[in-house]
Design a protein around this nucleic acid. Structure first.
Lengths: 122, 122
DNA sequence: TTAGCTGCAAAGAGTTTGCTGGGAG
DNA sequence: CTCCCAGCAAACTCTTTGCAGCTAA
């Protein structure tokens, strides 16, 4: 089952990956079609095994759906994403719920800026 | 100049709009091409007059680039976006800068959940 | 056998681009 | 006269879908 190969790539990665990156990675070991990757990914997302987040570049990034709550610092120059676990949003979410009646199920947060390396190279 | 009509629509709107919504709105008054809308929008974004944010639906939303800092509560059912000005992120951004050397230039935040109306209709 | 995986090719949506003609200064 | 603006159609990218064949239980 190719699903296992795809899921393994995600499990073994420390960052979030695009469908294409996963495809390239899996392709080193077995033959697989891009459609299969997308289909499998959607499957895993439906089963809550994998999380999908669309970033400002309009590309979907996939990562293991664990309980760690992290967000990314994305460099506007090199486009690398650096995870951070800083997130104070739970209390904001509670406040929103209290004040608007909106029940928050999740949130997406992206920080943009220039990473130290890119700043040095400038 | 059609740019003025497009910019006016954005200025007169209280929410963020998609290119298509802007196109439809402008079309009620003058003839305009979708490409022109996109081109003008990119132009306005480059000049920092308009802000563009890509949401989880992969669609770009445009709004006036004023200094108000707001984010949206997006209903997973009706997909309506409700602005909120709650945002504690500046101190998080400062902390990130201090601890990682990443210079933050901006951030994107989306809350997802179910709005009160949709909850009632369920 | 039944159900779920796959590959392939085509479609789809949102957005961009090249080319050309037209209007403003 | 220049140059920017606009329209049109085609191209592009990421992703989805239909169909048919295959694989596993």
């Amino acid at each position: 089952m190719k699903k296992d190969f795809i899921f393994d790539v995600i499990k073994n990665s420390t960052n979030s990956l695009t469908a294409e990156e996963i495809y390239n990675d899996v392709s080193q070991n077995i033959d697989v079609n891009l459609s299969t990757v997308y289909r499998t990914l959607n499957n895993l997302v439906d089963k809550n095994l994998v999380t999908k987040v669309v970033r400002q570049d309009k590309i979907a990034y996939y990562e293991l759906a664990n309980d760690e709550h992290k967000h990314y610092l994305i460099c506007d120059k090199c486009n690398n994403a650096y995870p951070t676990d800083m997130c104070d949003l739970d209390k904001i979410a509670r406040k929103i719920k209290r004040e608007t009646g909106f029940s928050i199920t999740g949130h997406t947060l992206e920080f943009h800026g220039i990473c130290p390396e890119c700043r040095e190279n400038a």
